[in-house]
Design a binder for these strands. Structure first.
Lengths: 190, 190
DNA sequence: CAGTATAGTAAACAATTGTTCACTTTGTCA
DNA sequence: TGACAAAGTGAACAATTGTTTACTATACTG
């Protein structure tokens, strides 16, 4: 079994079990008989910065999960782009505060103008206030909706607007209550 | 320390260390003196399905990471939506084959029509073939670009097109080589 | 070929793991 | 108040952890 396959197999193990295998488990995983061999292999991974020890226990580093992130594609071959900093995970990148966040499947085409389509998933952070211009999940006159928060300068009043010329602006007759703000969008193709 | 805070603290621990704390570590984490107390607490989590045992070792379940995914917002209060199946993680959801995937920061506005903007991050899977209509990373006459793959029925020839009326279609003079296909897009606001 | 680094075997090790037992404290509710 | 469940203490436990040592097999290099 090659070196890369071993790394691949414990990455697969981590993906399945959400934890690293123990030495004994690696013995079976790699088809090796001696724990010392495992010790040497793991030590090398630690040296390479793929795995670290926290509190005497092994844990994967960010490089363990690393998926290359490339920069500009205009300037030559993209793989060789210099902006190849290693990468944590999309969860960590997109969801800053997991406790107060939730996901929402978008329906309707009212936000097409800013690239939020029907079927997309938005990451929403629970908050009662939002900056003007941000996309908010709000309750306008008892009805829930996902729109852009605007401020009418003349009437000095917050209202909601779509990002699609098909729809008018929504002025609250009674009240406009913000429930959360959209921090990110995610769309899967096919 | 309340029950929820404990769960929160080991979730935080897992987020930081990418592994669950041991009983001894939980002692300090929770400010408790007896391992048996930890045993009971963890046992309850196992019963509740937040943590499971694989091969005699503890590991978080999907419910451990769960961020609620809500459905339609039109039909009343979104939090109460029935489509509240628990959720794995954005990584697992978006990146099906981590080994052959990489991320690419988009520049240019040529794909605005399908909601891919400058600064977005696309998840690309390395592949030499692609279905007509999919977004591909390709090399057209030695130049790299991100476009939609099309087929000219008359000339029986593949070409690339933007999703923006500003740009023309790109017919290869010499060759068109597909390098990968875009599986997902991700955009962070602010 | 010889020489040497690399990779694996086997056994022994203290340290730490999760679990169990018997008991005490705390809190809750009739 | 008293009774009972829930939550925590403390000590002991076998099992497993990662590490070390000494030795062997394999592979590579000049």
């Amino acid at each position: 079994m090659g070196e890369i396959d071993r790394l691949g197999s414990i990455k697969k193990f981590y993906r399945q079990h959400k934890r690293l295998p123990s030495y004994s488990e690696m013995l079976k995983l790699f088809g090796i008989a001696s724990k010392n061999a495992i010790f040497k292999i793991v030590s090398k991974w630690v040296e390479e910065g793929l795995i670290k020890k926290t509190g005497g226990k092994f844990a994967p580093t960010s490089r363990f999960f690393a998926i290359p992130l490339l920069g500009s594609i205009r300037a030559g071959f993209p793989i060789l782009a210099e902006e190849n900093r290693d990468y944590v995970s999309l969860d960590d990148y997109l969801i800053e505060d997991p406790q107060s966040s939730f996901l929402l499947k978008v329906n309707g085409d009212s936000l097409e103008g800013i690239g939020i389509f029907e079927g997309d998933i938005v990451i929403i952070e629970r908050k009662k206030e939002a900056r003007i211009g941000s996309v908010v999940l709000a309750q306008i006159d008892k009805e829930w909706t996902l729109k852009i928060l605007r401020k009418d300068r003349i009437q000095r009043l917050n209202y909601l607007s779509a990002a699609n010329p098909k729809y008018p602006s929504f002025y609250p007759k009674e009240e406009l209550q913000i429930f959360g703000i959209v921090k990110a969008v995610v769309r899967k193709f096919n």
